[in-house]
Every structure is written in structure tokens, then in C-alpha cells.
């Protein structure tokens, strides 16, 4: 099962390696990871996407909690939440395909953030499904470069689901 885990940590040097070391030391894989400061600059939030059996995930969340610099761990699997990811994709379509690429970007509520002689850089934000649908559609036009932020997530207000 795929889990999105949010980890509130002390914003200190070395914290990221404590967390990544916890994963690598046990052979767990991190699929995506995003880190940023919270409103309180002394605290950072990490959003980690990982896959594993229930027991493995339970061990991961417990081990995360055990780290001295970790303040709070939330596994979103049991929680109704919103999640978003942003991608930047630089496509180099043939001249005749350009209108279609622009149209696709529009359909997916993307923005053209840069355009060159032969390329467009498109920004798309959304849930995983939307992102992968867009990638599938844009691929045939020739992706030159591609980058994604990794997922971020927040619980929806007052709609905590039971286990």
C-alpha cells in the first residue's frame, strides 16, 4: 500500500539525513520527499511518499516518531486529506503540434511559464492522477526536461475518517 506521511520536525541541520538514514538503513524506499519551513521557522514539515506492507509502514511511523527531532508524524492513509504536486515540463513540440500542446496545458489548467524558440515550459499542479494523465498525454510531443516537487498534503478540516 502506498502511504503519504507528513513529518513535523525541528528545523535543525542533520534532520533530513536522520530521516533518510532511517529509511535507507532499513531498506525502505522513499518515492518522493518534499521539505519546507512551516509558519514557525523553527519547524519544518516533510511530506514523504513510501510503499510497504502495513507492518513495515507501522514500523516506519514508529521509528520516525522515535527520532528525537521529530515532533509529529501523520499517515494520511486513514485521514481525508488534500494532496498536491507540481511539475515543470519542458516540451519541444513540432511546429504543427504547438497548438495542441497549448490546448492540453489549458485543459489541465497549466500555465506556460517559459517559452523558447522551440520549447514551452509548462507548470501543472494537481493530484497524482491528474499529473500522470497529463504526462501520458504530453509525452508523445517530446519531453526535453521534466521535474516534479514531490507530493505535499494537508488534512481536510474536521473530516477525520475512522480506520
Amino acid at each position: 500500500m502506498r502511504h503519504t506521511i507528513s513529518v513535523l520536525v525541528e528545523n535543525k541541520f542533520g534532520v533530513l539525513s536522520r530521516i533518510s538514514g532511517l529509511f535507507s538503513g532499513r531498506g525502505y524506499n522513499i518515492e518522493s520527499l518534499s521539505v519546507g519551513e512551516t509558519i514557525d521557522p523553527a519547524v519544518s514539515i516533510m511530506t514523504i511518499v513510501t510503499t510497504g506492507e502495513d507492518l513495515v509502514i507501522e514500523q516506519i511511523t514508529k521509528q520516525l516518531n522515535k527520532l528525537i527531532d521529530v515532533i509529529k508524524v501523520v499517515d494520511f492513509l486513514e485521514i481525508d486529506h488534500v494532496e498536491r504536486e507540481m511539475i515543470l515540463v519542458k516540451v519541444a513540440p513540432r511546429k504543427e503540434d504547438k497548438p495542441e500542446v497549448l490546448q492540453l496545458a489549458e485543459i489541465f489548467r497549466g500555465r506556460i511559464v517559459d517559452s523558447g524558440q522551440t520549447t514551452y515550459t509548462i507548470e501543472i499542479t494537481g493530484e497524482e492522477k491528474k499529473i500522470s494523465a497529463f504526462i501520458d498525454l504530453i509525452k508523445p510531443f517530446g519531453i526535453k526536461e521534466f521535474v516534479r516537487t514531490g507530493k505535499v498534503a494537508l488534512a481536510r478540516e474536521g473530516t477525520r475518517k475512522g480506520k
Binding site: L55, E58, Q59, K62, Q63, N65, K66
Partner: peptide
């Protein structure tokens, strides 16, 4: 005392 010991 250590939750990670449990069910490991």
C-alpha cells in the same frame, strides 16, 4: 517503553 520494539 519503546513502541518500535512492539510487533517488530
Amino acid at each position: 517503553i519503546d513502541p518500535t520494539s512492539i510487533k517488530k
